[in-house]
Design a protein around this nucleic acid. Structure first.
Lengths: 198, 198
DNA sequence: GTCTATACATTGATAGAC
DNA sequence: GTCTATCAATGTATAGAC
């Protein structure tokens, strides 16, 4: 269980260059592409150097998971501060690159025991935060849609549309988007209570 | 482009035994487990024999895709003949084994060019058939839900719930299922026109 | 911190004997 | 139709020199 091998430090520039490369591959190729050889090639480095910075490939992927989660949290908070938070949240969930990444991470969670917990934890946290925020927004708009159900359906729909579109499968997408648009308009239509200036 | 190698015939029993093994692995382990050695081990045969029946691994996977699609079509037609077709369709989409398989196939489509077209084609066909059937059922029930949108949302939701549940992520599931239940009851509530006995 | 060299498992696939 | 033998490529990972 000890790690007798020498290891690079957490903050190093080279280290994050490997994480960059891994994230890029995950976005463009999917998790099938994340191998020690391919990641280090993309980073322009020797494969063995990767193992100076990461004990195993799982460790590298974990670093990617953590970074992806941080970025997602930042965008989430920005969305809440936007003029139409509900629509912005929908747009975040529908972002092609982000949704693809999410889908790949789910796939990874399915196949790599060691990473599952972290991925599930961060997905759960993100879902819970969205439910909380949407719940607040809906009650401000005096709408009694069930927030948790709406968030769940929106998340599932957004990711599926992005994933399928990437494959060229678009049957039913337009019709579903029309429903989303109708709901968004319905909610925005009711003037929200003016938020008290902080 | 020619295949100089000798090949087994299409209808052979041994051939379908390999397809059995491949499908089983796809359901239980996911597409990461589909290697020539693992499939032939599961089939209790030598690896090289697999290559007598399938030119490449892609060919084997294609055979699985075709079979999965046929089975799905059969269940679809059975659903339409059931007492509550709409609910049965929802249950088919929510079937754990089937939804997992669907997700794995989508993943495969993402990573293997040679198989993408076939997977997309069959998914598209299935979606279109469902939209057509639901549209008919809704108009019989005198409901004006937009069929295509409903089918799309239901498919996305069902698959996502199954996939996430397998990982232990269930936040928001119950709330979403409540919405589904409400819609199903609402539609069933209105007596359908009695179908003229054929 | 980066390099060379290396070990070893697994993969997809083929040639040719039986 | 099934077998033995074999290939090059890719995968994760380690030891030790510079």
């Amino acid at each position: 269980m000890a790690q007798p091998r020498r290891m690079g430090v957490e903050g190093s520039k080279m280290r994050s260059r490997f994480v960059d490369a891994a994230e890029e591959i995950l976005r463009d190729v999917g998790y099938m592409g994340i191998s020690a050889r391919q990641v280090s090639a993309k980073a322009g480095q020797k494969t063995q150097l990767l193992y100076y910075y990461f004990r195993t490939m799982d460790d590298l992927i974990l670093a990617v998971v953590r970074r992806v989660n941080e970025n997602r949290m930042t965008r989430f908070e920005e969305a809440l501060a936007s003029p139409d938070p509900l629509r912005t949240l929908w747009e975040i969930n529908s972002d092609a690159s982000g949704a693809t990444l999410s889908a790949e991470l789910t796939s990874i969670a399915n196949h790599r025991e060691a990473i599952r917990a972290e991925i599930v934890r961060s997905a759960q946290q993100f879902r819970a935060l969205q439910i909380e925020a949407v719940s607040r927004l809906l009650s401000q708009a005096k709408k009694d849609y069930p927030a948790a159900g709406i968030v769940m359906i929106a998340a599932a729909l957004a990711r599926t549309i992005v994933t399928e579109s990437a494959l060229g499968l678009t049957e039913g997408h337009e019709a579903a988007l029309k429903i989303v648009e109708r709901v968004l308009r319905d909610i925005a239509g009711a003037e929200p209570e003016p938020p008290r200036s902080a």
